[in-house]
Amino acid sequence: MAEGSSTEGGVEDTALCAHFLVALPVDGAAMSVFGGTVPETVVCATDGLAARLDELQFDLGEGPRWEAARTRRPVLEPRIREVAHPLWPVFHTALMDTAVEALYVFPLTLGALDVGIVELYSRTPGVLDRTDQAKALVLANETAWNLLDRLLRVQEAASEAVTPTASPLSRREIHQATGMVLVQMNVTPTDALLVLRAHAFSHGKTVRAIAGDVVARRLEFSPVD
């Protein structure tokens, strides 16, 4: 994750967090986005406790959100107060002053790209069953695409004022690359273009440059898991 936290990314939307509360047996949710050249941005929090849990882990530099980001796997703690956690002892101690009984953290990833993290908490202990875990993973994937699209639109809108319009020739190359990516990843044209934009964003390059690499077959994409 990038150092520093901000709410200036222009993607704040409490509805993104609320979707998880509607679909899952949890009491609160918080979400952060990070990656590429963007500092970590708090996207939403459904309540003060959710926001506090996110802030506490960020300040301490430890906790399940960091573990999920590092491993790129969900971290599920159905009885977080009852079990010692050697990887994040300070956060576990701080947790004792809250009403949280369970934490479920899901990384927001798209292929090799890290988009962010969503943290869910419950005031009662309990395991997320397979159905709920499957729902959470689907929501996490949909949210990752949504967040990335919003973030990239904000970034591109900010750069349009200082970036010359690409030539028609370069646009044709982008269209060609989009077609190649949709075949490689078995996604829609819209998502294929988003993949190109995301790769350019995360590597500090232009979409035109990435499209050129795809067309020249220097770069290929694999299907999203």
Rank of each mutant, 00 (worst) to 15 (best):
R72A: 10
S159H: 08
L128V: 03
N186G: 12
L182T: 10
V38R: 08
V22E: 13
R130Y: 06
R79A: 15
M180C: 00
S222M: 10
Q57F: 02
R70S: 04
V38M: 14
V42L: 07
V90W: 02
G63W: 01
V187N: 04
G63K: 03
M96C: 14
A134E: 06
V207Y: 00
A18G: 06
A84I: 10
A94Q: 09
G35A: 00
G28Q: 05
T178P: 00
G204S: 08
P74I: 06
T124C: 10
Q184K: 14
P168T: 00
G204H: 13
A136S: 14
R79Y: 14
L120E: 03
T163D: 05
V100P: 03
F34K: 03
V214Q: 04
V105R: 03
M96Q: 14
V183T: 06
S222A: 15
I174D: 03
S170C: 08
R171G: 05
L76M: 08
V207I: 15
L87F: 05
V90T: 11
A30E: 06
V42R: 14
V118S: 05
F34L: 06
P189N: 02
A140M: 11
A112N: 07
T190R: 14
V115H: 00
F91G: 00
G10M: 05
T109C: 09
T124R: 09
S202M: 15
A198D: 00
V224W: 13
S6H: 11
G4M: 11
S167R: 10
V162H: 14
R208L: 08
N186K: 10
L152Y: 02
G35P: 00
L103H: 13
G4I: 12
P86A: 02
V90E: 11
R123T: 12
L76E: 04
R150K: 11
C44I: 12
L194G: 12
E119S: 13
T165F: 15
R153N: 12
K205M: 09
M180G: 02
V154Q: 13
V224D: 12
L87Y: 03
L152R: 02
V207N: 03
R130G: 05
T178D: 04
A136W: 08
M1A: 14
L87I: 02
T109N: 15
L108F: 07
G4K: 10
A84N: 05
L148V: 07
R79H: 07
A84V: 07
G212A: 04
V207K: 09
S159D: 11
K205P: 01
R72P: 01
A29G: 01
D114N: 15
A200G: 14
P78E: 13
V215C: 01
R65P: 02
D13F: 10
A50R: 03
E82C: 02
V138W: 09
A68M: 04
T41K: 05
E160H: 15
R217L: 08
Y121W: 08
D13Q: 06
K205H: 13
E62M: 00
T37N: 12
L76F: 07
P164V: 08
R218M: 01
S202N: 09
V162K: 15
D27I: 04
I80F: 00
L95G: 03
D132W: 09
P25T: 01
E62L: 01
A140Y: 12
